[in-house]
Design a protein around this nucleic acid. Structure first.
Lengths: 199, 199, 199, 199
DNA sequence: AATGAATGAGCTTTCATTCAT
DNA sequence: CATGAATGAAAGCTCATTCAT
């Protein structure tokens, strides 16, 4: 582990500066660095500077904390994706904007939270999974709408769903290897993914 | 959960029919379905039909079981990849074979074990990670060798490492959505990935 | 549980309509329905419509609430028993009146509070037990005085203390089975107990 | 509290000498002396000389321990009551034997366990209550059969169910006051209850 | 090899109580 | 008087691991 207290870690834009927001920020960080199961509520309390018992004033259970981290992450990145889709009306440019937006979600400020969303999905209770899945579907719909336009123009030949999975895989996988401080910039990566997807 | 005993689940080719192999098979299945942390040694014992205490005659620790599942999976799929690479000397065809081999690893007979390899990597102790990482690197080297040949021919323009990550992401991500019993066959998927990667 | 707020439950005559009285009424109800240990101060606060922290402006501790419920119940039913004893000077009739008074305490308006007195006695701190035991003894003395008169007349043969225990057991036990809305009325039950005790 | 370890307390005939039986014996004692809620699993472990975690090898939950104490107590005392009922064919004598048997259950070797059965009934989960209630009904049936015979002979005038409740109350209540080492012997008490019930 | 009881540290969660506002 | 966030001790329970048999 690197940081030992919440002061030392970068803010995540999804979470505000309230006690509750700080709690979620700390949770996202620890779940990201150590995994959900390996992070104890005692550790989390210590990390953000309260007693472990006090966590349960803000959230009903540990599972509830995880779900809220994920929920806020989805909400925020849904808004970001939507905004990206509306920035242009040319589907090729829209696609480029979606790719970049999603890469930023994963490699940028919300990266830790997105990693948690990906890695800890199965740690979530079944009911919470179902609820978040609905939000996830709205998110995916933005992608599918753009892809269908590209297909109508003959620029995408394959099944939209599968095509999205392949491109999404490339992007999501970056969570496992991309380092923002490395030599490859997000714009370059965006270009690479865009070329692969469309050429 | 679906199966309640080891008789009901498909064999995985990595694991032989010895008591030890059955144990690994059961572990791979349960770790896949429930996650490593959520699977207790007692459950595992029950699943394969022995007392939980007896597991420790075969393996030093639960972590050791996970590491062995992963190790055998890597060894087996390394051999499969190597064989695929040697099937042709044309880099384009080699690439196609590698893609297909890796898709089979993930979606076919070793799918559950590969999913464990991907999802439970961080559940593994640091030392074991290091050890398996070396094997992983040998595996990756097969890919990189082929990509470098394609680059020499001008068919790949970008950095080999990053290019491999993007293609690998598309393939690995299929663990989250591909169903062998669905309508898309591995050969079609291979073709889609291959086109995306090379055109 | 049946009621979810204090408005829905029958008043108990021991407790007045002040905030404090309402608190005791709610406590008696919840302690009766759920038991003392299973009732949390948060539940109690919610039930009577204040924050749990505010309870401690009225009572020093949860134990103190229980003790006060019991104390007021004893005081009230002591007065009722005394009044019953003074209604006649014939010991046989006095006995009948005592039996009826005690049955009313247990099955009537103070039933819930009496049930708490019986069932949660051991939940009470030792010091409070001691204090209430003194009041209990005064209550018992009323019974013993009447019984001694009956013994002097030869109508009771056995040891007064034990005889009272047996009769008291019959009466107290009604807390476990008697339902006021059932077909047996208190007067009939009084008669049955009286006959058993004296014939 | 009096005893601090299981060696110092009297055996209860319901529970054998296995680890499991010792556990139940200790539980009965502590639940009796302190109440179920106030007895912690750690205390119980210490009392019988094992780690608190080890309790859960023998029983699924604390609730399960309580239920088992009660179940074995009911089974044992059911057998005792049955035997008592079969000792004579004269209903008056049968009644005397039932009274004595029940008094022995409550004041004798199984006294602590019977007290738990009475006092902690509501601490039990609803499902377990239901299950034990069925056994309780069989027990009560033995009483009702004898009472009906007495009614047929004109020796009991009132409703059998209520009559049993009154007599049962006298007997059960002895749990709150009777001390075997006191000057009143069970035979005397039996006679007193019998007279009260039948004369 | 296998058993199964026992360990003991550690887990999440509960909850009466406090106290600054 | 009331609030409600925070406390902190303690609760029931879990579980990988050990070991005498």
């Amino acid at each position: 582990m690197i940081a030992t207290s919440i002061e030392q870690i970068p803010k995540i834009v999804c979470f505000d500066d309230s006690p509750r927001g700080r709690l979620l920020l700390g949770a996202a960080y620890l779940f990201y660095k150590q995994g959900y199961d390996k992070t104890t509520v005692r550790q989390l309390g210590e990390f953000i500077g309260i007693q472990s018992g006090s966590l349960f004033h803000h959230f009903k259970s540990k599972d509830d904390i995880l779900a809220t981290v994920m929920e806020q992450t989805i909400i925020y990145n849904f808004a970001r994706l939507k905004e990206a889709a509306e920035r242009s009306s040319d589907p090729e440019q829209q696609l480029r904007d979606l790719i970049k937006a999603e890469l930023i979600s994963i490699t940028g400020d919300t990266g830790a939270a997105m990693a948690v969303l990906v890695h800890e999905w199965f740690a979530l209770s079944k009911e919470k999974q179902e609820y978040l899945l609905k939000m996830r579907n709205e998110y995916e719909q933005i992608w599918l709408d753009v892809i269908e336009k590209l297909r109508a123009q003959g620029k995408v030949k394959h099944d939209a769903f599968i095509w999205r999975r392949l491109v999404g895989g490339s992007i999501s996988w970056s969570v496992t290897w991309y380092r923002p401080e490395g030599k490859v910039k997000v714009d370059e990566l965006t270009e690479m993914v865009w070329e692969m997807a469309l050429k």
